[in-house]
Amino acid sequence: MSQDLIYCTTGIGLFALGLYGVLFVAHILRKLIAINISGIGVFLVLLATAKHEGVVDPVPHAMVLTGIVVAVAGTALCLWLTVNIHCRQITQQGESK
């Protein structure tokens, strides 16, 4: 039980930490990292849920695997948009000079 508690508390702590980061850090890359930290917090809670006495529940494991792929996809899309904007801003600045 105590082990479960440690994992859950850590998971929720990471989730809250990421939440603060997303809201109050201006830089877009840091925001993205914060979102990923939040995601890891959620996955930790799920993994803590999976462990029972005697059996390990495969369903949360599958959920975490799915969640990771979705997180990778979302992060990649955000990064792509970021680089895209940055590129265009630089060309605009170059043109205005």
């Binding site: 109050f24 850090v25 201006a26 830089h27 877009i28 840091r30 925001k31 970021t82 904007i85 940055h86 801003q89």
Partner: peptide
């Protein structure tokens, strides 16, 4: 949203 590398961090 900040994009510059040297932007203020918060």
């Amino acid at each position: 949203l900040e994009f510059e590398e040297n932007a203020k961090k918060t």
